[in-house]
Design a protein around this nucleic acid. Structure first.
Lengths: 237, 237
DNA sequence: GCAAAAGTGTTGAACTTACACCCATGT
DNA sequence: ACATGGGTGTAAGTTCAACACTTTTGC
């Protein structure tokens, strides 16, 4: 701030060190078995052959969100997944060698939209949340951080629906919350609370895949939620 | 992922574009007048003479948190302020010219610890939260984001105390929450709720600066809070 | 003695929690 | 007819919101 005052911006900027900027994505999914994490077996150095999060480097004409979308699309073939910034990991030696600074994102993916061929191409595999293998670098820390965020956030924002098919049943929704939060919920109280917000559209159809009686399918009414948000409404599970 | 497989890590990294990495800090303070923001009048290019957040570039042997501490210390002369990552701003043209990617942090500062000389040296000034001047680049967006985060977070974590003197009165604490949340609170209900958590140590002393009767001073019991945290306790205002 | 802020309790409403039985269906 | 998961209501406990008067003291 002393000598720099007299430099032009270009001169000043050129003295600053530049960094490799990457991103890693914690990708959550949900199915009958519970909450899952999508990991890749690295087919490239560094740490080739080990499990890690999907990631990539920031490129010149995109912002981090676009880079994260690009990386997610490359892995899954899908666009417009729920995606949220988590934390910047910047310790000088977090990466094995040659400093890389990484922005961690977490994504929520509807596993019924998945393209299994695409995933195989990248040696990607789903892991149950309590059976995560050893991960490279600080990826395990990122996963823990993402899980904590997901647990907190799913209680006050309707992000859980990003993990379910567009049409889902109430028992399915309950199992999702139980899987994320790691607790059992009372089905009467759960149903009462979730329906009392009047954000679910009940369909005529039933899903019979998990019982003889069948359970009614519902859809999340995103338009209504967005409208209510403006009026100070708070989602709560 | 196709040709890169056969490159060594160093070769691969060297093809990647590198970026200027900076940080900006939204610094909150609180005094009799309400919630405040600390801004600097830029004495350097770009945008010399305009109001902006305090910021700086990441250096080679530090992580972002250390850089943020350094920048804060440089401005205020203080260390160990409450500091939290907010959001990475990475749009290709967010900065006036020459791409800079910036990690935004927000900090909470006890204004009674401030060193006014130090602040003057940097042309820094406190602004009431609803009288913020025009800011450079996307700094206004950062401030809005920080305010939203502070409003949400102060309700479920005891971060408000970072803005008060070590010894404070209940009416002072209430005014703090009213200033942050932008609402009026009932003093009986407020006192009941905050004291019911049993996290405040009542001192013998009174503060008589704002009434003839004087109000008892309290201290936040951080040790007890940390202990309770482990047992699943939730702070709530 | 009065102005100004500190301090104090109660009641009704809303919400949360705990809990047990019937329903619809495929086999 | 029975096994399986879907669906429903109520009562007790807890928490929240609204509300008005007394206390202390410096002037």
């Amino acid at each position: 701030m002393t000598r720099e005052i007299h430099l032009t911006m270009v001169e000043f900027y050129s003295r600053q060190k530049r960094f490799l900027l990457a991103l890693d994505v914690i990708i959550f999914g949900f199915d009958e078995e519970g909450l899952k994490l999508l990991l890749i077996k690295r087919g490239f150095e560094p740490c080739k052959g080990q499990w890690s999060l999907m990631g990539g480097f920031l490129e010149e004409n995109e912002d981090m969100e676009q880079a994260a979308d690009r990386v997610l699309h490359k892995l899954t073939g899908l666009s417009d997944l729920y995606l949220e910034q988590l934390h910047l990991y910047s310790k000088p030696h977090r990466d094995s060698d040659g400093r890389v600074i990484s922005m961690a994102y977490y994504a929520l993916m509807k596993t019924d939209h998945q393209d299994s061929e695409q995933l195989e191409k990248h040696n990607a595999q789903w892991f149950k949340i309590d059976e995560i293998p050893e991960l490279v670098f600080d990826h395990r820390e990122m996963v823990n951080h993402a899980l904590a965020r997901l647990r907190r956030k799913c209680r006050t924002q309707p992000i859980g629906f990003e993990l379910l098919p567009d049409k889902f049943t109430i028992p399915q929704l309950q199992k999702l919350y139980e899987a994320i939060l790691g607790v059992e919920l009372d089905k009467r109280n759960f149903r009462k609370k979730i329906l009392s917000m009047e954000l679910l559209l009940k369909l005529e159809e039933k899903d019979k895949s998990s019982s003889r009686k069948g359970a009614f399918l519902y859809q999340f009414d995103k338009e209504k939620y967005d409208r209510l948000l403006g009026e100070g409404f708070n989602f709560a599970v």
